[in-house]
Design a protein around this nucleic acid. Sequence first.
RNA 1: GUGGUUGUAGCUCAGUUGGUUAGAGCAUCAGAUUGUGGUUCUGAGGGUCGCCGGUUCGAACCCGGUCAUCCACCCCA
Length: 456
Amino acid sequence: MAKPTVSLPQGTRDFGPDIVRKRQYIFTTIRTAFELYGFQPLETPAMENLETLMGKYGEEGDKLIFKILNNGLDKKEQLAREEFEKILQGRNTKAITERALKYDLTIPFARYVAMNQGQLSFPFKRYQIQPVWRADKPQKGRYREFYQCDADVVGSTSLLNEVELATLYAEVFNQLGVPVDIKINNRKILAALAEVCGGPDKMTAITVAIDKLDKIGLAKVEAELSEKGLDQQQVSIIRQYLEITGTNREKLARVKELLGKTETGEAGIRELETVLDYFDPSMQAPPLLIDFTLARGLNYYTGIIFEVKARNVQMGSVGGGGRYDDLTGLFGVPGIPGVGISFGVDRIYDVMDELQLFPADVQMGSQVLFFNLGEQESKTAFTLLQQLRAGNTRAELYHENSKFDKQFKYAEKKNIPYIVIIGTKELAEKTCVVKDLRNGKQISLPLEELLNFSFL
RNA sequence: GUGGUUGUAGCUCAGUUGGUUAGAGCAUCAGAUUGUGGUUCUGAGGGUCGCCGGUUCGAACCCGGUCAUCCACCCCA
């Protein structure tokens, strides 16, 4: 057999039957929860106009957008050569590329809302489960094609939405049995911190630095801040901010002392209090934890922000989201605020696989296999097969009259729990043998009773 | 984008200082076994040693390049 030298683009994967089953289990759990909370489905194209995406994810984000080469460049060779100079200088030009693969689901959703605002009734709650693409260098938990599952509410400033989304996170991870911490913070508190420590223009530098706290430690964070031009007193305030520990209540009390005097700080704290107040404490796991170092990169967030981290496993966040005041403003429709969360299915899969959290029955395809033991025998089996299928039992008939050995092994490999044997003897007696492969027990049944048998 | 790791059968991996015909386990297929699988035994198939080039009488092994992989940084789901 000659070995074909085919391959897959970097960072993309095929999913075989068993993997698809496990992924579908995650998708179904999330989709069901979305529906349960009153969100409506939406799908948008794989590609968007490049200008819809550019500039929305920060400078780094722009570099990670997959751009699509225009068709027909060979017909305008001269123009293409000239315009390509711009690409070499790091600029984009419509003459070379005017479309790109979508980078996340939030911006295309904002584009959709801006285009359809007249038709939508607000608040509009939508969920979206689709792949997105990023030209990142692949590594653990990072792929170039991966699925996001987003739920967003637009057209409402009510904090009840944040509460619902936090609860949605808790519900889904609870159902999947994945141990996580749901971290929560508020961009307003970070803004207040920046106000007190060098002004709003320092906010990005500050958030970038404190975001690294658990990775590089307090000393290096302080060094980085000094380097960015903060004086001793400002660095000291940030140290006090980062050293806040304790329960959510204790943290809020401490941060109130530190930043409660500023208007934005006060508002941010009050919002956090409200959300924590509503969040059902009887839902024990997973907890909603204040994390003042949480910053989140996407620069359109303005209020409460979320991030979900899996416990006991080294993996980036498995979910993230937050409030944005004016996303559609980028598309010429101001005044529509929103808040949303996202689930990273591929990472959730990796975590569940590593911690072996998939239920065993996720793998079950067919429930029953009819053995094929001859022409007359298989005709009888086929009739019964169709009747079982009509009753919603997943069933199949072995494709040819082979030795028992082969038919058994087929069932075993496909993880089919039951087999039905109809041979010459059974045919004559109008019975069949039902065997449970999991425990090796078998019983003989009259044919007509097979339809009432529960193949579980 | 920067740095590192690994690449040998379908899978997991051996392979001596460079030396005849590149091995093992698992998996697959066939037989022992024509109505009872999982255990066991016997046998078989399966390789351009990632790819291209170089050094050498001779390369899986040394060198260069390239591609892919995994990992870290940056950033993120």
